[in-house]
Design a protein around this nucleic acid. Sequence first.
DNA 1: GTACCCAATTGAACCGGTTCAATTTAAGTA
DNA 2: TACTTAAATTGAACCGGTTCAATTGGGTAC
Lengths: 306, 306
Amino acid sequence: MAAIETLGYHPTAAARSLSTQRTNTIGMIRSEIRLQGNLIETDPMVLDLIDGITSEAINSSTGLTFWAIPAGQREMELYRRLVTSRQIDGLILFALREKDPRVAYLQEQDFPFVIFGRFESKEGDNWIDVDGAAGIEAAVRHLAELGHRRIAYLSPPYEQYLTRLRWQGFVRGMEEMNLLIDPALIYEGDFSEKSGQLGTHYFLDQPNPPTAIFCNNDRMAFGAMRAIQARGLTVGSDVSVVGFDDIPLARYSNPPLTTLNQPIHDIGKALFNLLIKLINREPIDLLGGKLLKPELVIRQSTGRPR
Amino acid sequence: MAAIETLGYHPTAAARSLSTQRTNTIGMIRSEIRLQGNLIETDPMVLDLIDGITSEAINSSTGLTFWAIPAGQREMELYRRLVTSRQIDGLILFALREKDPRVAYLQEQDFPFVIFGRFESKEGDNWIDVDGAAGIEAAVRHLAELGHRRIAYLSPPYEQYLTRLRWQGFVRGMEEMNLLIDPALIYEGDFSEKSGQLGTHYFLDQPNPPTAIFCNNDRMAFGAMRAIQARGLTVGSDVSVVGFDDIPLARYSNPPLTTLNQPIHDIGKALFNLLIKLINREPIDLLGGKLLKPELVIRQSTGRPR
DNA sequence: GTACCCAATTGAACCGGTTCAATTTAAGTA
DNA sequence: TACTTAAATTGAACCGGTTCAATTGGGTAC
């Protein structure tokens, strides 16, 4: 032991994991998605997720390995390679798409993985999600209580699985408040500021424009506010804007953004701990719950309509 | 070969790297820094860096492994463990601090690493940096040409190595434009929105407040704009604000932020390619140069003083 | 039919740990 | 001193590849 100390010896990781069948590494793969040829930048929210995961992972000397690959054919090859070559102990999935082939493959291989978000089979205890629908319902209620009747909906990309769930929340909220959903006030965004801007211009060009816009993430909300202001209108009085995520910048925008807070950092930690249990084949007890309520943080981007 | 195909065989990563002494993984470690007990959130810029690195790394089937650890004693232990256990082929360092022990250690161990930024020994070809000083000089010139004479400086944390280089640029710019540096208009920030806000209130509380504030990153600039607006002043006319980084949100703030653009995505790619060459002990030829000029992007947060 | 050459195949050593059974050593008791 | 038992040490097998030397096989030339 003294020699280990003085020589600064550490067992070779490769030899160790060859023998123990553990790598002390978990993986996360970003699907590079292009819409109309443009690469969608990774959402700032993902950085918070990484922060949460890694700050917890260090306690068990575990690293988080990242890959980025265009969604599609090559993507599944990467998953297959990682799984069969046993390069990682487990995977964290996020941003699942409709008919996402990844879940079926990993289940079939009995490979440990957790999901940030839900998927078709809502059973299983390998996911943690925020109840986006409930959040949106609360946001709609907030807007309706302020007096808004024409609320536009800036949707996530339709190919994302969560889009379906989020939409249900919007419908519920609108019905609950006896508001009509106008098909002209729905726009498919891609989570980028740009698409928030485009969608908002589209809304405001309608013969009967909305007085409030619900945006499915903060970045699109920033784009929306920009578009509103570019038209000489005032956010919060002429048009109200609500975001989703509550990224750090949301409280520093002008005006500060009303948005739905997701405790991403804690979710990252929880996902990591859950994954470790799956890897160790330990019993799962999700005491903290796996469906967290997002909290509506009311700031100055929402107000009574003129 | 047909059997490999049908069975979906992939060589075990651990066995492979035990034999080849290559892991096809590079590492990056975030130093968790606390100032006044508060954890500094990772800058959105880092996410772009990760995006750049990973989107290039996938071409050589290489992953990027991330760890987060509090700066200090345990941090060096982690570096020692990773190096001696040969868990990664190389490291990418960023946000170097004054008297940073990491560089000396890695050099002594002859372990491949590259730095985003420079360090004391400016020799060596294992770094790529943006010429922050030149950028700040250009920003000061821009402000001076608009008619600003009292320019405040929102500094990075003094413990960061780049702080010294950036400061030289500010001094050069001010001297060049024959402006006086007022010690009351210097504030040490920590890269967070909050510190931008605090620093700006401090500046505006001075008997002789500034008409422009240079902020060493965009997040602090957002905080600065928030503080200015909270006092009922107008950004761009009452007080101008310049940022640094040009994160995606900068063009969507209100008003859009004048800032120094760093091509982070490309820097990430270049850093990766450089590191791979070091790992392979190949000759280095930094054709693209290693000291990139940041570009001043003029938007609406700067204007003529009243 | 034999000699020769190149390609393909086989075999052994090695990478550096972990694990568990077998053996040796040490300590405690009669 | 002999015996029992626990503790420490040694040894072999194994994890699953890569690498390179040695051997085998096939084809061509004389």
